[in-house]
Design a protein around this nucleic acid. Structure first.
Lengths: 210, 210
DNA sequence: TAGATTGTTAATCGATTAACAATC
DNA sequence: TAGATTGTTAATCGATTAACAATC
């Protein structure tokens, strides 16, 4: 599969290019040069051309890349046209904020494709209640619910001590990718990805430069 | 200044090493080899030795690195012994969750050094109220409050549309580093750093592999 | 001492940038 | 056509890994 050959840095930049193309005010008929797009994405122009050339010849010499087609191409490369149902584990303060944030993004952007369809918590008082209209399930229902809804992405917002066991069960239920907000390293089998978001580590890094 | 020569990737790894050294159960008198530390941090052993050697000779041949001294050294290198007062801009759902999260970390870890000392919001109904005992100020008080408290780090949790103007004012008030949760690119003068945390972009990247 | 592991140099790998013929 | 910009190859840069003498 071609996807395996694409370096992670390229995927990250493609995400940036698409974001820039969607949020800068280009018209559908406009052309954008690699230099322009590079400026907007803080990337060298040659880098932009090389990244895009990995997937085909989208540009026109002397003119640039047609914005509309480029948006569509990158969308397709990233699979950003698929609806992506999410699960959120741990509906405390952080979990709730994340659910509300995504719900808000979706309300304001009709093309926003992420949507939490299944929330989980172990607190019996929360189970059966809902956030943004999405019901909170007990962890014990994980396998049934996730398989039923075909959820492939999970957001981990439980305490660090609970994260690994939640992930193990989610993996067993077919989840293939995690965004982990718990400050702990997670072990997952090959083929499953974990991306980390740790406010403390970010602050620590930032503090070095100050 | 030596700090300018240290690549960003090295700083990131040092943060990881320290985190691993603090959270794995090493005794003060233990030694750790570069191979062990590398395993824990998902980094090659030679990489670990090279990173550490940038700052001096901390290890003992045939034995490894003394855990206690190594913790202290990395702490010093990162400046992780300094108290770091924070400001949080935008005390909505996300801002509140972040403040509570940091407060919780600090309660459970006596060495946790980040602490929000100044919260800002533009909503008159919020101004004067507090979260975790920390008062919410109006944006118009920014300069006075930030300079008074000598705040160098800011967390941006306002809507994307408001982020740039908040940052401009915070920079004018002496803030040198930002952790930006708003889904927008920020312009800052040289010498000021911005780190980005965008849930949507993370999910987009993750979705590519699934 | 023998075994282990550092610090460091050299080799490798991969990613970024420059350059330019092709061509719109 | 003349000017601009692509796609791609070659050159550069930097980061990672391997190897090993020094030495605890």
């Amino acid at each position: 599969m071609i996807r395996n050959r694409i370096p992670d840095v390229v995927v990250k930049r493609l995400v940036t290019y698409l974001s820039v193309l969607l949020h800068s005010d280009f018209e559908d008929g406009d052309f954008v040069s690699s230099a322009q797009l590079g400026d907007l994405a803080a990337v060298n122009g040659a880098q932009v051309r090389k990244d895009l050339a990995l997937f085909g010849e989208f540009g026109k010499q002397g003119v640039g890349y047609p914005v509309k087609a480029l948006r569509e191409q990158i969308t397709k490369i990233l699979g950003a046209d698929r609806e992506m149902p999410l699960s959120v584990f741990g509906i405390g303060e952080l979990g709730t904020a994340i659910v509300r944030y995504i719900a808000g993004r979706r309300r304001s952007d009709p093309n926003y494709r992420f949507w939490p369809v299944a929330l989980f918590d172990e607190d019996p008082r929360k189970i059966g209640t809902s956030v943004e209209g999405i019901v909170i399930h007990p962890l014990s229902d994980m396998e049934t619910v996730l398989k039923e809804l075909d959820v492939k992405i999970g957001i981990i917002a439980v305490p660090a001590s609970a994260a690994q066991s939640v992930v193990d069960r989610a993996v067993a239920s077919g989840v293939k990718g995690f965004l982990n907000f718990a400050p702990t390293k997670l072990k997952v089998p090959p083929g499953v990805r974990v991306h980390y978001t740790d406010v403390t580590l970010e602050l620590q890094e930032l503090a070095f430069y100050i």
